[in-house]
Design a protein around this nucleic acid. Structure first.
Ligand SMILES: [Mn+2]
Ligand SMILES: [Mn+2]
Ligand SMILES: [Zn+2]
Ligand SMILES: [Zn+2]
Lengths: 146, 146
DNA sequence: TTTCATTTGAGAATCATTTGCAACAAAGAC
DNA sequence: GTCTTTGTTGCAAATGATTCTCAAATGAAA
């Protein structure tokens, strides 16, 4: 059993829940994708195994609570996620025009954030830094690509 | 005409749009609320003036583009906003348990962010820093308030 | 006041996400 | 193994925020 499966199982057991075949399949799919994904994307990857879209939707909150995935930039009215293990935290720069997503390292900001958390006695589960605007390509004219 | 009305009118004219009574009313409502608000909240404030919810929804993107409001933490499936003028940028700390929202100054982070923007040649329109987790009240037990 | 483009209210349409429910599967006790 | 209990799932229907359609209203300019 791989790293993140162990972590998921541990989390589920703590809640009196079970690591079923479907949930393992969804977890595996989430870690097979190395970009941002939405519910539908995972569903496409595993629907051949008779996993329903409803189950994907029911499992995503579990993966979030377990700290295995994180919510990222919302595009086109759909919630998007990315897996965490082996993925250092990063900021997202979203171009409003072409919807390009650029990722940058977060290490320069973390010390200040953690300091603030200590002051607030806040228990951080997820840090989301999203900066929207225009990428260098779209900066000039008012294109309409994508 | 107040500061933000001037700015809105200028923005609208640049797009060949008009500063109508309804749009002015919505803008005014947005600046009368000193917390986060959603479309429905603004609607409640002005429906007595026969402004429709559809018009509120149509105006919010204009206020965003005009740089008068910004999108904040999404709660309960609803987009939420806050006005900008006279509101220094700040980070949002959202408690997953009681949905409390704490705001903290952003000035410690801005230099690093602006530096990165310069490197990326990215034109920043909006910075959104949302940290979720448990506030000090909810940290201990697994309450279920709110 | 005539003209023409923009705006608006009302209600229908969208569409991601959630839910109810009856059939199923996991896991522990025997 | 078999029984029992409790959590899980597929399916289809429900939900609900946001968007859209369209005909009537309004604004600005001439
Ligand atoms: Mn990412
Ligand atoms: Mn705020
Ligand atoms: Zn772009
Ligand atoms: Zn709390």
């Amino acid at each position: 059993m791989i790293d993140h499966e162990v972590q998921f199982k541990k989390f589920l057991q703590k809640q009196g829940l079970k690591l079923t075949r479907n949930r393992a399949r969804i977890l595996e799919a989430a870690f097979s994708v190395h970009e941002h994904f939405d519910a539908e994307k995972l569903y496409d990857l595993i629907k051949a195994d008779n996993v329903s879209l409803a189950t994907v939707y029911r499992t995503l909150p579990l993966l979030l609570e377990a700290g295995l995935i994180t919510r990222t930039v919302r595009i086109g009215g759909r919630d998007r996620f990315e897996h965490i293990l082996g993925h250092p935290r990063h900021a997202h720069w979203l171009c409003e025009n072409c919807h390009a997503v650029i990722e940058t390292d977060l290490s320069a900001l973390l010390p200040a954030i953690n300091k603030e958390a200590r002051a607030l006695k806040f228990d951080i589960q997820n840090i989301s830094i999203n900066i929207s605007g225009l990428c260098w390509k779209c900066k000039g004219g008012a294109n309409d690509s994508q």
